[in-house]
């Protein structure tokens, strides 16, 4: 028992140290960063965060990212719900092949499609909009959402559907009133994954935006190359990108184990 906890703590230190180091740097001045190495800030400063939170070019990026991530999460879960129900309850023409095809999209490298994506969204005048990034991210989030939800739905006994239909429920009413509440943990876990994969993605988000919908991750890479190395601000921007994720994890921490255990994932 002792040895195991020791190993776990050792790993957690390994996991947290790089993040701590960035937080540490975000609270230092650039002179201190490039000067002597110190384990905590000697001259605590919040200037780096102030720079970001007062400059629209910076904080706009966070808002843009949040907008398309939220659109993507809502849309992905919304279209995946009925599809996952169909896969978990019915056999139909080509069902297995369709499922496999969906999965292959989760697995095709975005790098393969960058240029056509850019042209596709330009040709329908969606380039540089939040909806374009949200739609593009659906390519890998929808298959994953269908996959996870299907696992959860298969865990719900079929008798519940049948009883509801006998009681005179129509499909939409049954689905919204009875079925969705039953798998709410699964929807939570699915939303968590959609949020996560959309929030961390850089390549597509950067390719499909230029000014109006530019995500924070793209702003970070460009600012670095333009203004030389402003380590403090870079670290502060990085710290701020972790905050939404940390909040999401905190809220779903109990669902993760419970939800996973119920579903396929």
């Amino acid at each position: 028992m002792k040895k195991r906890s020791f190993g776990l703590i050792l790993y957690l230190i390994f996991a947290i140290l790089p993040i701590y180091w960035m937080v540490n740097m975000s609270l230092k001045t650039n002179e201190e960063i490039t000067g002597a190495l110190s384990l905590w800030p000697q001259h605590l400063t919040f200037d780096n965060f102030r720079t970001i939170l007062t400059d629209p070019a910076w904080y706009g990026g966070y808002i843009n990212s949040l907008i398309y991530v939220l659109i993507n999460t809502v849309l992905s879960v919304a279209v995946a719900l009925p599809a996952a129900y169909a896969f978990s309850r019915y056999e139909f023409l080509g069902d297995k092949h369709l499922f496999f095809w969906l999965l292959t999209n989760r697995m095709s490298p975005p790098a393969v499609f960058l240029l056509p994506f850019f042209q596709l969204y330009s040709s329908i005048n969606l380039f540089d909009t939040h909806i374009a990034v949200a739609l593009a991210h659906m390519l890998f989030n929808v298959p994953l959402a269908v996959w996870i939800l299907e696992g959860f739905m298969s865990g719900v006994p079929r008798e519940i559907d049948e009883t509801a239909y006998i009681d005179g429920y129509s499909f939409p009413r049954f689905f919204i009133r009875i079925f969705i509440p039953l798998i709410s943990a699964g929807i939570g876990v699915t939303a968590f994954f959609c949020f996560m994969f959309s929030w961390v993605e850089l390549l597509l988000a950067r390719t499909l935006t230029s000014v109006e919908a530019k995500p924070i991750v793209a702003i970070m890479t460009r600012t670095v190359s333009a203004a030389g190395m402003d380590w403090g601000v870079l670290a502060a921007a990085g710290v701020l990108t972790i905050v939404p994720g940390a909040l999401v994890i905190y809220f779903v921490r109990n669902y993760i184990a419970k939800g996973f255990a119920m579903g396929r994932v």
Binding site: I216, V217, R253
Partner: peptide
């Protein structure tokens, strides 16, 4: 431990 462990998962790739 779960929250600490999951932290790296939600950090954007370039970060």
């Amino acid at each position: 431990a779960l929250v600490l462990l999951a932290m790296p998962l939600l950090i954007p790739q370039n970060v």
